[in-house]
Design a protein around this nucleic acid. Structure first.
Ligand SMILES: NC(=O)c1ccc[n+]([C@@H]2O[C@H](COP(=O)([O-])OP(=O)(O)OC[C@H]3O[C@@H](n4cnc5c(N)ncnc54)[C@H](O)[C@@H]3O)[C@@H](O)[C@H]2O)c1
Ligand SMILES: NC(=O)c1ccc[n+]([C@@H]2O[C@H](COP(=O)([O-])OP(=O)(O)OC[C@H]3O[C@@H](n4cnc5c(N)ncnc54)[C@H](O)[C@@H]3O)[C@@H](O)[C@H]2O)c1
Lengths: 218, 218
DNA sequence: CTATTTTCGTGAAACGTTTCACAACTTGTA
DNA sequence: TACAAGTTGTGAAACGTTTCACGAAAATAG
C-alpha cells in the first residue's frame, strides 16, 4: 500500500472485481488474467492491473491472479470481510424493501435496528425486527454497536435526523432522500438518487448521446 | 450549443442545478449567481458557469442567471419538460416501493404499466395499476408508447428480460439487479447498485479515507 | 457621465484518470 | 538449458475534467 488517496472510481471498480471473482470462484477457476477479469465487467486489462497495483502486487506474471486469494484481499480492502451493524431509519416504501433484501446481510451488512416516528409503525414487526421509536435512538445505536445508518425518510426530515444520527457518533450514512445533506468532515455520506438516473436516461434519449461503443481489441 | 460530448458528471450536475433552481423559485428568487447556485449543491462557481456554457449563454453579467428561465432551459436539456411513459417489470420489494413513489410522476416519469411473471401477482392492483403477465409485454409496450423500462427483477432473470425488452424497441432501461447486462450500442442502460454504495462506505470506514474538506473560499 | 462593483463566459493552466507500452518474470516445451 | 508464449506491474503519454484568471458586459452609486 504505497499511495494514499484512492479515487472513487477505483473503489467502485473493486466492487466490480469482487463480484466477478465471486462468479469465477463458483465456476472453479483457480486463476484469472486481467484480461478475463476486465471482460467480465466491461473494463480494460490495464485498468484492472493499475487499480490492483494501488493496493499491492497480487498476481503472478505469465499466470494471472489467484481467484480465491484476490477475492479475499479485495474483501479486506473494502472492509466486507466482516459484519457491519446497520440501522435503518424510515420504514416506509423504500425502507421496507431494503429490510426485506437478503443480499445485504449476505454481504455482511446486517440491518439490526429499525426506527420510525409514526406511532402506527412503532412496535410493528418487519422480517423479525421490531420498529423502534426515535426517542430511543442514541441508546439503541450505542447498545447495538451500530456503525452504519441507512436513511429512508422524507427529504423534509432528513437533515434533522442526520444531525441527530451524527450526534450519536455514527460515521457512515447511506441516504435515499434526494436532498443535499450537511455532515461534518469525518462523517461519510453517500446519497442514492434514483431520479438523477432517470434524468440521465431522459437526457440520453432526447440528445441521442452516442455511447462509447469502441469494443476493446480482443 | 457548440460542442457535442457532454460528460456524465456535467449531466448529473444539471440535475443538481435543476433541484436547486426549483428551491430558489419556491423562495421567490428572480436571479441567482453561479456562486449561490454552487453553494447550494456543494460545487464551485466556475463549475456551474463552465457546465452551463456547454449549452449556451444563459446569464447576465453583473446580475446572474434568471431562475425561472434557467430552470426551464435545463428541464429542456434534460428532457424532463415532458412526460415519459414508463413500464416497471418485477413488482417485488423494490418494484412496489418504486410504484408508490409519487416523486417520479411529479418529475414527468409516469409508471403506466406493471409486469410480473408470478401468477399470484398478475391481475393484482398496485396504486391503481393492474399487474400484467410477461406474454403481453410487446403489445402493451407498443400500445402504451412506453419509452423507458425499469427493471426490478432478480439478477438471474435480468439478462433474458433485457433482451426481450430491447427486442420490443425500448431504448432506455433503469436496472436494479446487481449484474452486468449486455445491451446493443443504441440502448441506454443505467444500473443502480446499492451494495456498491454500502461497500464504498465500508471502505471509507476501514481506511479512514480523508474527505476533501477544503471549504471553497467564500 | 464616470467610476466602481458585480458576475458571466471562456481560453489556458493545473490536476486527475485512463491507456499505452515494455521490461521483468513465470510457465511450458523440447 | 534455451526459447517461445503469456501476463504482471508500472512509468510515461494521452486524454479528460476542474480550476484559475481575466476580459467583457451589466448594474449601481455618485
Ligand atoms: N419509494 C421510492 O421508491 C423512493 C425512490 C427514491 C427515493 N426515495 C426517497 O426515500 C425516502 C423515503 O421514501 P418512501 O417512499 O419510502 O417514503 P414513505 O413516506 O413511504 O416512508 C418514509 C418513512 O419515514 C418515516 N418518517 C417520517 N419522518 C420521520 C422522522 N422524523 N423520524 C423517523 N421516521 C420518519 C415515516 O413514518 C415513513 O414510515 C424519501 O426521501 C424519498 O424521496 C424513495
Ligand atoms: N429489495 C431491495 O431493497 C433491493 C436493493 C437493491 C437491489 N435490489 C435488486 O432488485 C431486484 C429485485 O429485488 P426485490 O427485493 O424486489 O426482489 P423480489 O423477489 O421481491 O421481486 C422480484 C420480482 O420479480 C418477479 N420476477 C421474477 N422473475 C421474473 C421474470 N422472469 N419476469 C417477470 N418478473 C419476474 C418476481 O415475481 C418478483 O415479483 C433484484 O435484482 C435485487 O437484487 C433489491
Amino acid at each position: 500500500m504505497r499511495d494514499r488517496r484512492i479515487s472513487e472510481s477505483t473503489i467502485h471498480r473493486l466492487s466490480h472485481y469482487y463480484r466477478a471473482l465471486t462468479a469465477l470462484e463458483r465456476e472453479h477457476f483457480d486463476t484469472v488474467s486481467s484480461k478475463e477479469l476486465a471482460n467480465r465487467e466491461e473494463l480494460t486489462p490495464a485498468q484492472v492491473r493499475k487499480d490492483l497495483s494501488f493496493f499491492g502486487s497480487f498476481g503472478t506474471r505469465g499466470l494471472g491472479y489467484p481467484v480465491k486469494e484476490l477475492k479475499e484481499r479485495i474483501a479486506r480492502i473494502l472492509g466486507i470481510d466482516r459484519f457491519w451493524n446497520v440501522a435503518l431509519i424510515g420504514v416506509g416504501n423504500i425502507g421496507s424493501a431494503l429490510v426485506s433484501y437478503k443480499e445485504f446481510a449476505r454481504q455482511g451488512f446486517n440491518i439490526k435496528l429499525l426506527f420510525d416516528n409514526d406511532q402506527r409503525k412503532i412496535g410493528s414487526n418487519h422480517k423479525g425486527i421490531t420498529v423502534l421509536g426515535m426517542d430511543d435512538l442514541e441508546r439503541q445505536l450505542n447498545e447495538n454497536k451500530i456503525e452504519l445508518v441507512i436513511l429512508a425518510v422524507p427529504a423534509s426530515s432528513a437533515q434533522v435526523i442526520v444531525d441527530h444520527v451524527v450526534n450519536c457518533g455514527i460515521k457512515a450514512i447511506l441516504n435515499f432522500a434526494p436532498i443535499k445533506l450537511a455532515v461534518p468532515d469525518d462523517v461519510f455520506l453517500r446519497t442514492e438518487n434514483m431520479s438523477m438516473e432517470l434524468e440521465y436516461l431522459s437526457f440520453s434519449l432526447v440528445n441521442n448521446l452516442p455511447r462509447k461503443s469502441d469494443r476493446k481489441k480482443t
